[in-house]
Design a binder for these strands. Structure first.
Lengths: 350, 350
DNA sequence: GTTAGCACTCGTCAGGTGAGACTGCTAGAG
DNA sequence: CTCTAGCAGTCTCACCTGACGAGTGCTAAC
């Protein structure tokens, strides 16, 4: 019951048990630990230690005469230990190399994130994802209007870091191409270099200020810009790869069918993932959410390893989702590596 | 053994059996058919009929003292029957209404297809998909160049039917924005209204013809156009929705885990789906591929209902994928409805 | 505090049994 | 010649059983 500090031996037994279980997927017996753990004590002593650990809630027995299996709390202890030791030894290099290879020399930001999710999947064999920062704080570089049929216009916005986004708006009346391109030039000259949210506010302010706009061109440009920037808070694009790993039939079903369903739904309705992460992403570095620690009861039974990249208001996230029984050590270093690589890319591009 | 024409009674028994099995998912007994089929004969007679049907390969018994289950051949017979009767009674209206509601009044082509896959999923509760026609035959309407950082340029191409596609190219040297927009104007004026493949050929021809281009602007424009149109054969965008339905735990596992994996992989590596369909899509109307009729052995155990839309060279497809035990009648009318709706949209937009 | 040894518990597996579900067959009726 | 009633046969499923083995908890001795 007492969650007090564990003795060194107890810690080592727990760590070894978790590691063994992650590798084998089968309850770990005291005899096996005795052999593997390398501290010179007999299985009987280990059994006493295990009984303690069970009292404290770190391990449990599937049934009376089975070995021990880590609980979520046990995983948590193990992971915290890892996070402490790992902090120094980042081996991001191979992840970063693969990411550069995958994404090409100078990709669009979306391509980079898509590649990141793919690389995370490749390295971890679990579902990998990458989430873009909210567009609000992106630095406006350029806008372009492409006329479509009727009164519709395709708006292409480019922000720093090759962050391209597009949107279709309906202008109500047909605007000649020449007017569109002049409007674009005006906006590019006027607002280039500002954060998108500020551009939006500035546009609205000007429209308010000068009720009657004598300059027809400026009126068109500002109105177009306002419509374009209206929905700027909402999206945050999400990239996911490796959903097929959920059906991996390695040994037994790694996650329950209902959990699988929830995850697949998340793959489709990507914004759910964003909402999920908002709750967990605070500090820097890698965060791990294990099994029952999830708020959503459907997600107990799977773990989330996630790291934020970028700074201040312009933060995104990369990570992986897999069964609670995953190779945390590898997962953590891979996710960490990916976050560092994406952050570096952002810095270099600016 | 003889696949000869079935007697009216035999047909009705088979149809009733398939329908019952699709509804219940359990082997159908002679007594149940006797009750449901409504032809005034006893279960013993039904049993004789069933023995015949089994000889001919339309049904089988999971084990000696179980009811009958349709084979793929049985489903095939049932579906062919449906296709015959259904041809007249298209009730596309509700599908089309939902599609218009979902996609909005005048969507981009991609949005339309994305909505179509979603609506197919909604109506059938199976995986819905929509595939765009190859870009080659799209009618070129407009091109626009947006400068990115360094020597990279974002190219936005608009084809008829609000078919927008984009691509990043590296020009090697930085080109000033004004030159880019002039190049775009030149290309728009010169090639508007031609099929993209023809535009590509024309561009290449001109570059060949006039080795030394005195007009700097034309040189830039043509070179940009060539690079842009290089990879025009490859893509064919694919939209898929409802993968989570694969994990539906309605009754037992509807598809095997390995089939599920194959399908999930197909969801990720979408081009596989395109290759799959190329083999089946020939005539007009709805095509159904059932279980073992698939070439890919991994896909036995699931069925594909698909219909082409559009005409001639400019054909795409919509459809659904689900377990062999699916509501074919509904599936067929829904897929048919979606194909008709998408085709109508294409026609209206042109 | 540690260890050896032993009794005990519990899940798993193979084998066996009874009930229930349907069929195939056969003999007889229409 | 077609249909039907009835019955024996066969198979699955659920349940129980006992032997086995894995692994523990406990205790007494070091």
């Amino acid at each position: 019951m007492t969650p007090g500090p564990l003795s060194d031996r107890t810690r080592r037994v727990l760590a070894c048990l978790v590691k063994d279980y992650i590798d084998s997927g089968e309850p770990v017996a005291s005899a096996a630990l005795c052999r593997r753990a390398g501290l010179g004590v007999s299985s009987a002593t280990i059994r006493n230690v295990l009984a303690q650990l069970e009292d404290m809630g770190y391990v449990r027995q599937p049934h009376t005469s089975a070995g021990r299996v880590p609980t979520d709390l046990g995983y948590r202890y193990y992971v915290d230990m890892l996070l402490d030791t790992r902090r120094a030894t980042r081996d991001a290099s191979s992840v970063e190399a693969r990411l550069r290879e995958q994404a090409g020399a100078a990709p669009l930001f979306d391509q980079l994130l898509s590649s990141a999710s793919h690389v995370l999947f490749e390295f971890s064999h679990h579902v990998g994802f990458a989430i873009a920062p909210s567009e609000q704080h992106a630095i406006f570089q350029r806008i372009e209007f492409v006329p479509l049929s009727g009164s519709r216009v395709l708006v292409v916005t480019v922000a720093r870091g090759n962050h391209v986004s597009q949107k279709v708006i309906d202008t109500g009346e047909e605007i000649p191409p020449s007017a569109l391109s002049q409007a674009a030039s005006y906006l590019n000259a006027e607002f280039g270099g500002m954060p998108l949210a500020d551009v939006r506010d500035a546009v609205i302010a000007r429209l308010e200020q000068e009720r009657t706009l004598y300059d027809q061109l400026r009126a068109i440009a500002l109105t177009l810009a306002r419509t374009t920037l209206e929905g700027i808070e909402t999206p945050a694009s999400v990239f996911i790869d490796g959903a097929s790993s959920l059906a991996d039939t390695g040994d037994a079903t790694p996650v329950s069918l209902s959990t699988l369903r929830t995850l697949l739904q998340m793959v489709e309705e990507k914004q759910r993932l964003v909402r999920l992460l908002d709750a967990y992403l605070e500090g820097p570095g890698v965060a791990v959410v294990i099994g029952a620690e999830h708020h959503d009861p459907q997600l107990r039974g799977c773990s989330l390893v996630v790291a934020a990249y970028g700074d201040g208001a312009r933060r995104g996230a990369v990570g992986i989702i897999g069964p609670t029984r995953m190779h945390y050590s590898r997962a953590i270093s891979v996710v960490d590596g990916a976050a560092v690589a994406v952050a570096r890319f952002l810095r270099d591009e600016n």
